[in-house]
């Protein structure tokens, strides 16, 4: 293990942040479309335009926000709200942990400032690069900013434009995130070890989705896949 590369500070490059901002724009476009869908749903649920926008700007997590709307009424029960938000977003904990070998080489302020922008698409990009031996925390920052802008702008548009978009499902647009995440997984390392982890993760996730409380399947599947790694070690440690 080379001590220099493991311990030297990570230098964030602003030009790389810009490149990653631009690179994720095609995906951000679809995120914006789903922001429109969220804005629409939020207003129909009874949130005011600025409240829906405030939620997108501060929560910045689509699935949890839609689930939050599902709890809406004259009042919202606090414990279920927190439990569901935590369950749906607990994948962020794993994603942050996966980037830790790079993150720990940033000063704490930058490390946690960067993680505020963490979401599925920019993490998938950054982690795929890491697997390929390239350190790219800039993807979290630049990509995250583009995705956040798209999500907030989409919500604003949805809140104001209403139902003029038609039916995004008819065009398959609801599948963009699923297809993107699948493509990112397949684009990474596909060793026998990882394929076994995926088989275990997929099976556990489906079983959890079928029989465990709602929204627990992602964390159950991911941890089950991780167990494979715990017992079947990688051939060589992650060196660059």
């Amino acid at each position: 293990m080379s001590v220099d590369a493991e311990n030297s500070p990570y230098q964030l490059e602003s030009r790389q942040v810009t490149r990653e901002f631009v690179r994720i724009l095609p995906i951000a476009l679809f995120v914006a479309i789903f922001g429109v869908a969220f804005g629409l749903a939020a207003v129909q649920t009874g949130l005011g335009p600025w409240q829906a926008t405030l939620m997108s700007a501060t929560v910045f997590a689509g699935a949890a926000q839609f689930a939050g709307l599902g709890l809406w009424g004259a009042e919202v029960a606090l414990i279920p709200l927190m439990a569901i938000t935590l369950a749906i977003n607990s994948r962020h904990i794993l994603m942050g942990a996966a980037l830790y070998p790079m993150l720990r080489r940033l000063p704490p302020g930058r490390r946690y400032g960067l993680l505020v922008w963490l979401t599925d698409a920019n993490w998938a990009r950054s982690y795929q690069q890491y697997q390929g031996g390239r350190e790219n925390l800039e993807a979290i920052l630049g990509g995250g900013l583009a995705l956040w802008l798209a999500w907030v702008a989409g919500t604003l548009a949805g809140v104001h434009l209403g139902g003029r978009l038609g039916n995004p499902q008819a065009w398959g647009l609801d599948m963009v995130l699923g297809c993107f995440l699948l493509a990112m997984a397949l684009g990474g390392v596909r060793s026998r070890r990882i394929l076994l982890a995926w088989a275990v993760a997929g099976t556990a996730a489906v079983l959890a989705w079928r029989w465990l409380p709602p929204h627990t399947h992602v964390i159950v599947g991911a941890l089950a896949g991780g167990l494979v790694g715990l017992f079947w070690l990688e051939k060589s440690p992650h060196g660059h």
């Binding site: 994948r91 794993l94 994603m95 996966a98 998938a124 982690y127 697997q131 995440l181 699948l182 990112m184 997984a185 990474g188 390392v189 070890r193 990882i194 982890a197 995926w198 275990v200 993760a201 997929g202 996730a205 992602v218 599947g221 991911a222 941890l223 089950a224 896949g225 991780g226 167990l227 494979v228 790694g229 715990l230 079947w232 990688e234 992650h238």
Partner: peptide, 9 residues
């Protein structure tokens, strides 16, 4: 590393 891409799956 096994857990990371398992999240996506």
């Amino acid at each position: 590393s096994a857990m990371a891409s398992s999240v996506l799956i």
